[in-house]
C-alpha cells in the first residue's frame, strides 16, 4: 500500500508511471474486498455441502433465486420500495436530529430540561414505536417512514449534541466580527465543524434504518424487502430470504462505495494534504 502511495505524490514522475501506480492504488482495496467476499462465499458453499438441508441452501441456489426474481422484475420493485423508505427516513432523521442536537448542545438549560426526553426515546424499543405509529396514524406510508425516523432521531440527537459542544467559539466570533450572513455561517463555519459527527451519525444511521425499515414493512406494508422476507418465511423458502437480504446488502455496499465515501473524501480534502 505504501509504495504506490509515494509514487502518487512524487512530482516529476513520468505521467504513465504515475497514472499506473494511481490505478494500482485505486484497485488494491477493491481487489482486497473482492477476494475477501469470495473467501466468505467459498466457506459458505463448503458448509452447505457438508450439511445439505432445505433450510441451509448454498450460494449457487441463492444465486439462482436471485436471477429468477430479477428476471421477473419483482426484485427491483421491492428493492426500490425499501430503498425509497430508507432514503426518506434517513433524510428526515438526519435533518430533525441534527437541528435538535445542535440546539441542545448550544443551550445548556434546554439540554438539562430535554435530556430525560432523549434518554426516554433512546430506550423505547423500535417495535413499540412502529406498532403505535400504525395504530395512531393508520397503515400508511407516512406512518411507516415516520416510525423509522422517530427510532433514529434520538441517536442523531446524541451524536450531534456532542458535535455542538465541541464547536470552537473562536470561529463563531470571527464570523460575528466579519458579519457573515446566516447561510454563510451554516455552510462555512458550522457544518464543516460538525462534519465528523454528521459522518458518524450517517454511518450508524443507514445501517440501523434499513434494519428497522424491514420490520416496518413486515408489519404493515405490502411491498419492500421486509414484506418479501415475511412472505418467504411463511413458505419456508430460505434461499429466497437470503437472496433478498444479500441483494439489499449489496445495494447498501454500492451506496457506501459510490456515494458515502466519495462525499466524505470531498468533505475532508483539507485534512488529507500533507502539511
Amino acid at each position: 500500500m505504501t509504495a504506490p502511495d509515494t509514487g502518487d505524490r512524487t512530482p516529476g514522475v513520468a505521467a504513465g508511471i504515475s497514472s499506473q501506480s494511481g490505478l494500482a492504488t485505486a484497485a488494491a482495496p477493491v481487489l482486497t474486498i473482492a477476494v475477501s467476499l469470495l473467501g466468505l462465499c467459498l466457506l459458505w458453499g463448503l458448509a452447505a455441502n457438508a450439511w445439505p438441508s432445505r433450510a441451509f441452501p448454498g450460494p449457487g441456489q441463492v444465486w439462482q433465486v436471485l436471477l429468477a426474481e430479477a428476471a421477473n422484475g419483482d426484485l427491483f420493485c421491492h428493492l426500490g420500495a425499501t430503498l425509497g423508505r430508507v432514503a426518506a427516513a434517513y433524510v428526515i432523521a438526519m435533518v430533525f436530529g441534527s437541528v435538535i442536537g445542535v440546539l441542545l448542545g448550544s443551550y445548556r438549560r434546554a439540554d438539562r430540561f430535554f435530556s430525560p426526553w432523549v434518554i426516554l426515546f433512546l430506550n423505547i424499543p423500535a417495535l413499540v414505536v412502529i406498532v403505535l405509529a400504525y395504530i395512531w396514524f393508520g397503515l400508511n406510508e407516512a406512518a411507516a417512514i415516520g416510525a423509522v425516523a422517530v427510532n433514529k432521531i434520538p441517536n442523531v440527537v446524541v451524536t450531534m449534541r456532542e458535535g455542538a459542544r465541541a464547536l470552537d467559539p473562536g470561529y463563531a466570533e470571527m464570523a460575528a466580527v466579519y458579519r457573515f450572513g446566516p447561510l454563510d455561517r451554516i455552510r462555512h463555519v458550522l457544518l464543516p465543524q460538525l462534519q465528523p459527527y454528521l459522518a458518524a451519525a450517517s454511518r450508524s444511521g443507514i445501517a440501523l434504518i434499513w434494519k428497522i425499515v424491514l420490520v416496518v414493512e413486515l408489519l404493515g406494508r405490502s411491498n419492500g424487502v421486509g414484506f418479501q422476507i415475511y412472505l418467504y418465511f411463511q413458505l419456508f423458502d430460505v434461499a429466497a430470504i437470503l437472496a433478498y437480504t444479500l441483494a439489499f446488502v449489496a445495494v447498501m455496499l454500492v451506496i457506501e462505495l459510490l456515494l458515502v465515501q466519495p462525499v466524505e473524501r470531498h468533505a475532508t480534502r483539507w485534512r488529507r494534504r500533507p502539511a
Binding site: 473562536g170 466570533e173 470571527m174 466580527v177 466579519y178 457573515f180 462555512h188 483539507w270 485534512r271
Partner: peptide, 23 residues
C-alpha cells in the same frame, strides 16, 4: 470592523483565498 486575533483563526476547511473572500 476588522480584527486580527491572537490566533490566525482561519477556517481550516477553506483555502486562503476563500478565507479572505468570505470575510
Amino acid at each position: 470592523i476588522a480584527a486580527v486575533f491572537q490566533e490566525p483563526t482561519l477556517l481550516p476547511w477553506r483555502t486562503v483565498e476563500q478565507n479572505v473572500r468570505l470575510a
